[in-house]
Simulated assay, not measured.
Amino acid sequence: MDQNNDRIMNAESLNIDATLEKLSNELKPDETLILDVGNNYFDQTDTIYDTLVMKGYDVRKSFKNGRNQILVTKRQLR
């Protein structure tokens, strides 16, 4: 991952729909956004992950420093 193109957003208390809206408006092709979900209350990580996959994003789950994270990259249109 290119550290210059990575951004981190705290998604622990965000509404899933608001998170998706922000992603679709702000994430540029080949830019990575790290959603820091934290403690994964109510299986929030899985819900966000599944929704992003269905919307066509490249998505990976990560666990760093005791926190759940989702790494999201917008696919380059070809």
Rank of each mutant, 00 (worst) to 15 (best):
residue 66 G to K: 03
residue 68 N to V: 06
residue 48 I to E: 02
residue 9 M to F: 12
residue 48 I to D: 03
residue 49 Y to F: 05
residue 15 N to M: 03
residue 74 K to S: 10
residue 30 D to R: 09
residue 40 N to P: 03
residue 37 V to G: 08
residue 33 L to E: 12
residue 51 T to D: 12
residue 65 N to G: 10
residue 2 D to S: 05
residue 58 D to R: 13
residue 55 K to Q: 15
residue 63 F to G: 06
residue 8 I to C: 11
residue 66 G to W: 02
residue 66 G to A: 05
residue 43 D to F: 14
residue 77 L to S: 12
residue 75 R to F: 10
residue 44 Q to S: 13
residue 64 K to F: 11
residue 14 L to S: 10
residue 24 S to D: 05
residue 37 V to L: 08
residue 20 L to Y: 07
residue 39 N to R: 15
residue 27 L to A: 00
residue 74 K to N: 05
residue 12 E to C: 02
residue 59 V to N: 05
residue 3 Q to R: 03
residue 25 N to P: 01
residue 77 L to H: 09
residue 68 N to Q: 08
residue 9 M to P: 00
residue 28 K to T: 10
residue 73 T to N: 11
residue 64 K to M: 10
residue 56 G to M: 02
residue 38 G to E: 05
residue 22 K to I: 02
residue 72 V to F: 01
residue 53 V to G: 09
residue 70 I to R: 00
residue 18 A to W: 00
residue 60 R to V: 15
residue 9 M to L: 11
residue 16 I to G: 00
residue 58 D to F: 13
residue 28 K to H: 10
residue 39 N to H: 14
residue 26 E to F: 04
residue 60 R to D: 14
residue 37 V to F: 02
residue 5 N to R: 11
residue 27 L to E: 07
residue 61 K to S: 06
residue 32 T to P: 04
residue 63 F to K: 09
residue 1 M to D: 09
residue 78 R to N: 14
residue 47 T to Q: 15
residue 60 R to F: 11
residue 68 N to Y: 04
residue 53 V to D: 09
residue 27 L to K: 04
residue 61 K to R: 12
residue 77 L to T: 11
residue 16 I to M: 02
residue 13 S to E: 10
residue 26 E to M: 08
residue 54 M to W: 08
residue 29 P to Q: 01
residue 5 N to I: 08
residue 57 Y to R: 01
residue 43 D to T: 13
residue 28 K to A: 14
residue 24 S to M: 05
residue 59 V to A: 03
residue 34 I to P: 02
residue 6 D to N: 12
residue 4 N to H: 12
residue 50 D to V: 11
residue 6 D to F: 07
residue 49 Y to D: 00
residue 62 S to N: 13
residue 45 T to E: 03
residue 16 I to W: 06
residue 9 M to N: 10
residue 67 R to H: 09
residue 59 V to Q: 03
residue 62 S to Q: 14
residue 7 R to E: 11
residue 4 N to Y: 00
residue 29 P to E: 03
residue 2 D to Y: 05
residue 7 R to W: 01
residue 26 E to Y: 05
residue 28 K to W: 09
residue 3 Q to T: 12
residue 10 N to D: 07
residue 39 N to V: 15
residue 48 I to R: 00
residue 55 K to G: 13
residue 57 Y to Q: 09
residue 65 N to S: 14
residue 59 V to R: 02
residue 49 Y to I: 01
residue 19 T to L: 15
residue 40 N to Q: 08
residue 65 N to F: 10
residue 23 L to I: 10
residue 5 N to C: 05
residue 39 N to C: 09
residue 49 Y to A: 02
residue 6 D to W: 11
residue 62 S to E: 13
residue 32 T to G: 00
residue 14 L to V: 06
residue 41 Y to P: 11
residue 66 G to D: 01
residue 22 K to D: 09
residue 70 I to M: 04
residue 49 Y to E: 06
residue 52 L to A: 01
residue 11 A to C: 02
residue 30 D to H: 07
residue 26 E to P: 02
residue 36 D to L: 11
residue 44 Q to L: 15
residue 38 G to L: 08
